[in-house]
Write a protein that binds this DNA or RNA. Structure first.
Lengths: 335, 335
DNA sequence: GGCTGCCATGTAAACGATTTCATCGTCGCC
DNA sequence: GGCGACGATGAAATCGTTTACATGGCAGCC
């Protein structure tokens, strides 16, 4: 009937040792004598003892929490990175505190509050719109940036965004397209900038025209992809291929085009970016740039764990390779 | 150069009061005199004091953590529930610990460990395959089940799964379909059972045949939807309409059908379940049963907060209404 | 045999808050 | 004017660990 959970004191009493020995048995078993160790372990089993993480964290001056900042938790792209993060953090006894940076206008203030409140031992930033200054205060814990860098010196796991865009352009150019358009992410976002730059540079490299009217603004959502499709329809001189800065937008765009009777890829070829799971299940399948999302999360978590362990704010950076996945949404340029 | 964070002691010293008064000023401002309160608050501002959550939690015998059990974090359906949960939990100073119940074979054991380790003040269960016994040990904190019930007496936020299935069937029957098939979720999952039962009952109510060959087994993933499409192709006597137990499966199925040249809805009508965002962006749009995912999360979190506040394991339950969203993937039965 | 040194363990002081209980005024009332 | 009550504050215990330091015993060595 002891609904109370056993404490280290109880274990110590049962095993006939001091709490120090119990603690040592659990954290560094090799420093206690074999006999004592066994006595303690059986006392642990008998009492059903579990270490109280809160107390442990307090004493060890850590929080056991990693704060993950992301713009939109409902985006499947992010959730898969989360899965990667979790697979490393959970075994390391860290829990993820997920903060949606998009909710509400006071987001920036709430954020600073969060960052400096000592609620987290580390930070994983998935939001490309956060300012480097916000992230480099003295009170801000070690941080790893994911998928972006913005000239900051913080360690990061980045994806070859520019090269990804170039892969898309080259693929389309190889298929004979000469009029290639682009739908960007939201302005100010690093992903947006790099992919757009990579796109423009690749066009130039292939000697293809960069046409301002063909660069449409989106915001990574399906809705904005659909809007881009409508905008495309209203263009006088329409590109025969579109490279969209995210799969979500590409899906929204493709759906909107198809429901207007425009054929993909016969009338227009579509390339996305991300390779989210659904891309292969569409008809036609979506040609896209693959980013290994789980790996990204895993590497980010590993780097962060290293930083926390070595108590530094500097860490390694890593660049993750992207690949073109050709599918049915791209085809030869129409006449 | 005091990179150290201020403690309540520092504030007390600066304000010339005791730590007790500082603590009171912050947690129940009305019991301290106005003058003292102001002195304390300005000392707080001056020192940049933030309460140390870990210490506070330890003293107050809480963890400040809610454990969320879900089968697959990458599923967009769940992430939106998470968003709803977060919107309630974060303001209440709770953080979410997300545990993927699917990873690894020792999942069940790890789970029990988690549940009883006192790591969480509450539990939100999104996984329909967990056994009620696992969730009702004396050491398990207050729990709310989401989207399921399995005869358990635990409080829950459930969705009208059976009625949703009936809505789908009636919609198809109204369109003249008499041969209606179903793709289920994974066996043993409560959602699977209830939706299948609702499906069968609705067929019977409309006087339509229940044909075992037309009930295909899936597991809620796109891949299994695609597999169902292939299975459908191999049927001798093919249903003219399919109700799939999740949108993901419906998408996988529709994509696979279309890429085989089978037209939706001319050759076969498709109904999903969930109304995930992408459903409206497909071409044709996916007819589906809408569950208000964010609301579900919000209500579950609210109920849990109530339970924690009143220190009980019993809470209210709530049933969330579903709606049919007709889109282009359903049409009149072919001749 | 006595000294050095190491190994295993215990003692007790943190960690930073909350909260009970005691104390000290001050006010009101008879 | 004295007594009771109440309102505001402080002192100190407590939450459950971890860990620096002290202690005691035993082996090894001259």
């Amino acid at each position: 009937m002891d609904s109370k959970i056993a404490t280290i004191q109880d274990v110590a009493r049962v095993a006939g040792v001091s709490t120090a020995t119990v603690s040592r048995t659990i954290s560094k078993p090799d420093v206690v004598a074999k006999a004592t160790r066994e006595a303690v372990l059986s006392a642990v089993a008998e009492t059903g003892y579990r270490v109280n993480t809160t107390a442990s964290n307090l004493r060890r001056q850590r929080t056991g929490t990693v704060l993950v900042l992301l713009p939109n938790i409902a985006n499947p792209f992010f959730s898969q990175i989360l899965a990667g993060l979790a697979s490393v953090l959970t075994p390391a006894e860290y829990s993820m505190l997920i903060a949606d940076t998009q909710t509400g206008p006071d987001a920036d203030q709430r954020l600073t509050h969060y960052l400096t409140s000592g609620q987290a031992d580390g930070l994983v930033v998935l939001d490309g719109t956060l300012s480097p200054e916000t992230l480099s205060g003295p009170l801000v814990p070690p941080a790893v940036l994911v998928c972006e860098w913005m000239g900051s010196t913080l360690p990061s796991v980045r994806v070859e965004n520019a090269r990804g865009a170039a892969l898309a352009v080259n693929h389309l150019a190889d298929l004979g397209h000469r009029k290639i358009g682009h739908v960007t992410g939201p302005p100010g976002n690093v992903l947006t900038e790099t992919r757009r730059d990579g796109f423009c540079r690749a066009l130039a490299d292939r000697g293809l025209p960069v046409h301002d009217d063909w660069i449409l603004e989106g915001d990574f959502t399906m809705d904005s992809g659909a809007a881009a499709a409508r905008a495309w329809c209203h263009l006088e001189d329409r590109p025969t291929a579109l490279f969209l800065s995210s799969d979500e937008m590409a899906i929204g765009c493709m759906g909107a085009l198809q429901s207007r009777g425009i054929r993909v890829p016969e009338d227009v070829s579509i390339v996305g970016f991300d390779n989210i799971e659904i891309a292969q299940h569409l008809s036609p399948g979506l040609t896209t740039i693959r980013q290994p999302r789980t790996d990204i999360g895993v590497r980010a978590a590993e780097i962060l764990m290293d930083m926390i362990a070595s108590k530094t704010k500097d860490g390694q950076s890593e660049i993750i390779t992207v690949h073109l996945i050709p599918r049915g949404s791209t085809g030869p340029a129409p006449e």
